[in-house]
Design a protein around this nucleic acid. Structure first.
Lengths: 203, 203
DNA sequence: TCCTGACTGGACTGTCAAGTCCAATCGCGA
DNA sequence: TCGCGATTGGACTTGACAGTCCAGTCAGGA
């Protein structure tokens, strides 16, 4: 069984390993990432890796959790504004702008892990699914607030709209990634916005 | 340079290798698929692999092309009906039903390859992007026919709607794959249908 | 101070996979 | 039939990587 660090030094070492592993996985893929790479980047020896993690799969599980946190934390400020139409538009604009800065490279880190490990590591798949759940919940909360404030009509199905919006985002990111074309994400999100916009209050 | 087969026997061997490789890649992932696995499944020796393909990357390129063809060919009959609203609904229903039969497993084979190889093999990424282009083109052609027939309003932007629909489908498939929940795809496609539906003729 | 458990260093092993090589066989065209 | 290029068999080389092992060092509590 992998040991939980009990000292401050141990916590830092474990955190360094996970951060390094996330980097290496992003760069070389989950299967292509070697523990030698991870150890070198984390300035940690082999025994440290096996002190804190059972095996490579256990480490990848931690990487999946860290990836969820990174993706969602990066949007935290924008999520807070999702309770107004303008905030929703700003969120979409920011996502597109981010892809533009990266020239359409990279796609969604969570989706990449799903593609690499989703069919082969059920535990990791579940972690990634929980990341999507959190994402969808944040979107839904914003839409629900817009219903409460009257900015969206009371009849708007926020469960469905949130699910559909996250799907548009994820699909837009894949198309953007495959084509290196941020406009693909732009079109996808414009579709999601148009769908939500159909429920805007008459006011 | 990899040799193109000139005899019938050679063509069959090459085809057997690509089919076997596609199977193994689907099962174990692109990096996890070993040439020994592929050779065994294709009843082909190591020299046969290297006779028809430069290296593993070259083989994976052929697998990507075969995957495009498989995904699009499987929908060919449904694509033909995309020129009516009912045909569009049937297409969506068939995609959801297919995921139900698989218990939400597998996701989109093209998207899985993007996640595994998109950031590391540019040639393969381009092949996969061309698969998406063909897919989007088929959807767009159906929508354009609906505009021509008057089933959609003349102002409907078929480029945008096709791109947005494919994104909803791809995103729905990823969410379905991560959660093992075909309803995630259902909600995503319902979003796409609702967006298109907003442009249906007044008739 | 000293003891103990947490933590660390790094060599070592066994396995497996990509790619090479050469000899052998097949079958079409002259 | 004969020659030759296309095709095939499979052993071999080389390197990389996951996981093991043991001998340490560190630091906080008694």
């Amino acid at each position: 069984m992998s040991a939980q660090p009990t000292t401050e030094r141990g916590r830092q070492t474990r955190a360094r390993i996970v951060a390094a592993a996330a980097d290496v996985v992003a760069e070389k893929g989950a299967l292509g990432a070697s523990l030698d790479d991870v150890g070198a980047r984390a300035m940690a020896s082999r025994s440290q890796l096996y002190h804190y993690f059972d095996d490579k799969t256990d480490l990848l599980l931690a990487v999946a959790q860290a990836t969820n946190d990174a993706v969602l934390d990066a949007q935290r400020a924008l999520f807070a504004g999702l309770d107004t139409w303008n905030g929703l538009v700003r969120w979409a604009d920011a996502l597109v702008e981010f892809q533009r800065q990266r020239d359409g490279r990279g796609g969604c880190p969570i989706a990449n892990l799903v593609g690499q490990l989703g069919e082969r590591e059920d535990g990791i798949r579940l972690v990634l699914a929980s990341g999507y759940d959190r994402w969808e919940t944040d979107i839904r909360a914003g839409l629900a607030a817009m219903v409460t404030s009257g900015e969206l009509q009371p009849g708007a199905n926020t469960d469905w709209l949130a699910a559909s919006t996250l799907a548009s985002l994820q699909g837009g990111l894949i198309l953007c990634q495959a084509r290196r074309d941020p406009d693909a994400l732009r079109r996808a999100l414009d579709g999601a916005l148009a769908l939500i916009g159909a429920y805007r209050g008459a006011s």
